[in-house]
Deep mutational scan, measured.
Amino acid sequence: QETIEVEDEEEARRVAKELRKKGYEVKIERRGNKWHVHRT
C-alpha cells in the first residue's frame, strides 16, 4: 500500500483519477488540513 499526501481535495481527486486509470484501487482520506490518497 502506498500513500500520497497532497494539499487539497482537488489534487487528491486528480491523483486518484490518474491511479484509477492505471488500474489501481484508491481511497481518499482527509487528515486535518492534508489529504491522503491510499493506493490499495
Rank of each mutant, 00 (worst) to 15 (best):
E11D: 05
R13D: 01
G23E: 07
N33A: 14
R13A: 01
E25I: 07
A12T: 01
V37R: 00
R31F: 09
R13S: 05
Y24F: 02
A16D: 06
H38D: 07
R30I: 03
I28H: 10
E29Y: 04
E18S: 09
E18D: 06
H38I: 03
Q1C: 09
H36I: 05
E29V: 09
A12H: 00
E18I: 01
V37M: 01
R39W: 09
K21F: 13
Q1N: 14
R31A: 05
R13C: 01
E2W: 05
I4A: 02
K34P: 00
R39S: 09
D8H: 15
R39T: 05
G32C: 05
H38E: 08
A16M: 01
G23M: 07
E25L: 07
T3V: 10
D8E: 14
E2G: 15
V37L: 05
K22D: 05
E9Y: 12
R31D: 05
E10L: 12
E18V: 07
R14K: 11
V37C: 07
T3L: 15
Q1T: 02
I28R: 06
Q1A: 02
V6E: 00
E18A: 03
K34F: 10
V15E: 04
E11P: 11
W35E: 02
G32K: 11
R14E: 02
K22V: 07
R14F: 06
E11Q: 15
Q1L: 08
A12Y: 02
E11M: 13
V15Q: 07
H36T: 08
L19Y: 01
G32Q: 12
E5P: 15
R30K: 01
E18L: 04
K17V: 06
A12P: 00
Q1M: 01
K22I: 07
K21A: 13
E25R: 08
E25F: 01
H38T: 13
E25V: 05
E5Y: 07
G23Y: 03
T3G: 09
E11G: 14
V26P: 12
E10Q: 14
K27S: 05
R14I: 05
K34M: 05
K34V: 07
E29P: 00
R31H: 03
R13P: 00
V6I: 10
D8Q: 15
R13N: 05
Q1K: 15
E11W: 11
R39N: 05
K21C: 12
E11T: 15
E18H: 00
K27C: 04
V15T: 09
V6A: 09
G23F: 01
E10W: 13
N33P: 04
K34A: 11
K22R: 10
I4M: 15
R30Y: 05
R20D: 07
V15A: 08
A16V: 04
T3W: 06
T3R: 14
R30M: 14
E25D: 15
Y24D: 05
A12G: 08
R39H: 11
K27T: 05
W35R: 01
R30H: 06
H38K: 09
R20S: 08
E5H: 10
E9A: 13
K27L: 07
E5S: 10
E10M: 15
V15S: 06
E11C: 07
D8S: 14
A16T: 01
H36F: 02
K34G: 11
V37P: 00
T40K: 01
I28F: 07
K22A: 07
R31W: 07
E7P: 15
R13E: 02
T3N: 10
G23D: 15
R39L: 04
V26L: 05
I4T: 03
K34T: 08
D8I: 14
E7M: 14
E9P: 11
R14C: 06
R39A: 13
L19G: 11
E29Q: 11
R13T: 11
L19M: 02
E5V: 14
K17R: 10
E7W: 11
G32W: 03
N33R: 12
G23C: 03
R31Q: 07
E2A: 10
